[in-house]
Simulated scan of single mutants.
Amino acid sequence: MTPHELNLHVQAYKERLQREDKERLTLAYLTAYFGRVKKMPDLKKLLGAEQTSSKKKVQTPEQMLRTVQALNAAMGGKVVKKPTEDSK
């Protein structure tokens, strides 16, 4: 393992520990919160909010092309067209 690879592993380990700490803090906060509320929120509603935000819209090929063209123009890209069979 090279020093660079070791550094990458150390950084990934550090990020994982930070993510786990954040999850534990969130769990402790929510545990304390739910212990104090008089009426529990609906679990399906709590879990459903997360699931609905991750749904992806299905795009047609034309919509994808327009999106890519808009991003290309916004980032200052050039339009490069493939040569056709007639121009060869």
Rank of each mutant, 00 (worst) to 15 (best):
M1E: 08
T2E: 00
T2R: 03
P3M: 09
P3C: 12
E5I: 00
E5Y: 03
L6Y: 12
L8H: 07
H9A: 08
V10M: 07
Q11L: 13
Q11P: 11
A12R: 02
A12T: 14
K14D: 03
E15P: 01
R16G: 02
R16T: 06
R16K: 12
L17P: 02
Q18V: 07
R19V: 06
E20C: 03
D21A: 15
D21I: 02
K22Q: 11
K22N: 11
E23M: 14
E23Q: 13
E23T: 12
E23W: 15
L25R: 01
T26H: 15
L27E: 07
Y29D: 09
Y29T: 12
L30K: 04
T31C: 07
A32N: 05
F34N: 09
F34L: 05
R36D: 15
V37S: 01
V37W: 00
K39S: 15
M40L: 05
P41S: 00
D42Q: 06
L43F: 13
K44F: 05
K45F: 06
L47K: 10
L47S: 09
A49R: 11
E50H: 10
T52N: 08
T52Q: 07
S54L: 02
K55E: 11
K56S: 14
K57A: 11
V58A: 13
V58H: 04
Q59H: 11
T60D: 02
T60N: 00
P61T: 08
E62C: 09
Q63H: 09
Q63V: 12
Q63Y: 06
L65W: 04
L65T: 02
T67R: 06
V68M: 15
V68K: 11
Q69I: 08
Q69S: 06
A70L: 05
A70V: 07
L71P: 03
A73M: 07
A73F: 10
A74T: 12
A74M: 07
G76A: 10
G77V: 01
G77M: 02
K78S: 12
K78I: 03
V79R: 09
K81N: 01
K82V: 15
D86N: 14
S87V: 04
K88S: 09
K88R: 01
K88W: 05
